[in-house]
Design a protein around this nucleic acid. Sequence first.
DNA 1: CCTCTCATGTGAAGATTTGCACATGAGGCT
DNA 2: AGCCTCATGTGCAAATCTTCACATGAGAGG
Lengths: 291, 291
Amino acid sequence: MDNWDEVRTAFQVARLGTVSGAAEVLGVHHATVIRHIDALEGKLGVKLFQRHARGYTATEAGNDLLLVAQTTDDQFAQLSGRLKGRGASVTGELVVTSLATFSPMLAPVLAAFREEHPELTVRYLTGDRLFRLEYGEAHVAIRAGAAPDQPDNVVQPFVRQGLALYAADFYKERHGLPKDESEFKDHFFVGHDQETRAPFNMWLRDHVPMENIVYRTADNRSNEDGVVAGAGIGFLPVKVAERYSNLTMVTPPRPEWSAPLWLVTHVDLHRTAKVQSFLAFLKEAAKSWEA
Amino acid sequence: MDNWDEVRTAFQVARLGTVSGAAEVLGVHHATVIRHIDALEGKLGVKLFQRHARGYTATEAGNDLLLVAQTTDDQFAQLSGRLKGRGASVTGELVVTSLATFSPMLAPVLAAFREEHPELTVRYLTGDRLFRLEYGEAHVAIRAGAAPDQPDNVVQPFVRQGLALYAADFYKERHGLPKDESEFKDHFFVGHDQETRAPFNMWLRDHVPMENIVYRTADNRSNEDGVVAGAGIGFLPVKVAERYSNLTMVTPPRPEWSAPLWLVTHVDLHRTAKVQSFLAFLKEAAKSWEA
DNA sequence: CCTCTCATGTGAAGATTTGCACATGAGGCT
DNA sequence: AGCCTCATGTGCAAATCTTCACATGAGAGG
């Protein structure tokens, strides 16, 4: 039975009792209906209808088909309703991925967004590896660095994360604070162990002697912990620093420190209401993050 | 959702994960599959799949469709099996109709046929009105008289019912029996009240004075009762008379008394195994009925 | 690193399906 | 009785759908 449209045609004929009626409901010519029935009966080797001048009456076989196809029709109608609604509304899952660094900023936004859409389940994925949008692993990704140029991805500029230099109370009490850049050579810093392409990191290497970077870490989270613990002066996102009461801003944010962030979605999902709605919400919330 | 074939295509893509695989299973070109998916997504306004170089992965919507279409596929497969089997085997209902007269002859045949086909339900319809084959009211009809010529009906000659003149013991004791036709004028007869087209009835009117037909009835059954009760000599089918022990055959059957019987089926059902099987069975059983 | 394979995607030609026009026949209504 | 309506059925032209051929890109494996 490899032609579901013919089954659908037969279903309408069985339901309505006439070829003409079925043709009108289906929006096709009645000749098409007749041919569908003939083809289906031929393939099945069973008469589904008895033809007479007043229409088609279903045989036992036809009635059997009617019952099965009726449930199919109902289920497809329900499915169609669900799917269309899903396209226009914000339900189901929303999968967001980013570097773990952004978790503190993102978590409140995600929570608030979910609050607005009770039928939504939020999955927030962070991890070492990059989750791949093209395999459906996530709907929205927040990426840092150069603009990604994956062909199937829709990339749009997001905010530039405001970065500033901070020192913890513990450090301030022991070493004081530099008045300006000229005194940096007399202070200790927290920085990344490897050379990275992050602008603030490159700036640090340019303006601070390597030997003054005494606490070096392999990831952003450890870097943050080092600054908070008072191991040295270091870069932190303003939004992250605000969460600690023991930090003093050494130098205000500068645009050249901040790397651009990108919002990335897969083409196929970018136009859905769910994704669009979330992107709008996210951009609104991110206005306070600006550098 | 008015294109079940596209749903079926999407189902296979969701199941197999690739357009090419689905195309092979469906027996169509992969371009066709792509266009079906595009059309379906366009009509639903939802992306069902995320496209990437290694294939199509189903979105939430796609997975939803997969579940629904899977059950549909199963049910259609089951239906197809039932229907194909039904065409080749003898199951379900067999609806037979005839004049009530033939009930005594038909009942044993129907019972034996049903015994051979345990999955069969027999419906035997007799009644005043003629049941109409073209509306699916019956599969097989046994008709008497001139050959019916309904266009959609398949008519084939059946047996000629053997008819003979009988007298009951009660009549014989009181009036004796006629030696031959010449003595008919001295006997009393049971016959039909109205003029009918039945050959034996016309023969009776030609060879017996009207005043000797003293017991006149409106239907065959009453006619039979009259003869059995000894109201007069009368025509009975040989097969019917055999069921009574108190009847004596006055005159053996003659071909000119018997009306031809016809087996009628509707074109659409005539070629089915069920009908063919029954017709063969019936003809075999009817060999003993011959005039 | 390069090639080989297998996947999707697209424009044009070809084949099947569809629609149209008309024929036919059965009921229903006046 | 006779017309009118509504049903199915069929040949032929048109439109749609499918196929073909080819392009493109991503992995796998040496």
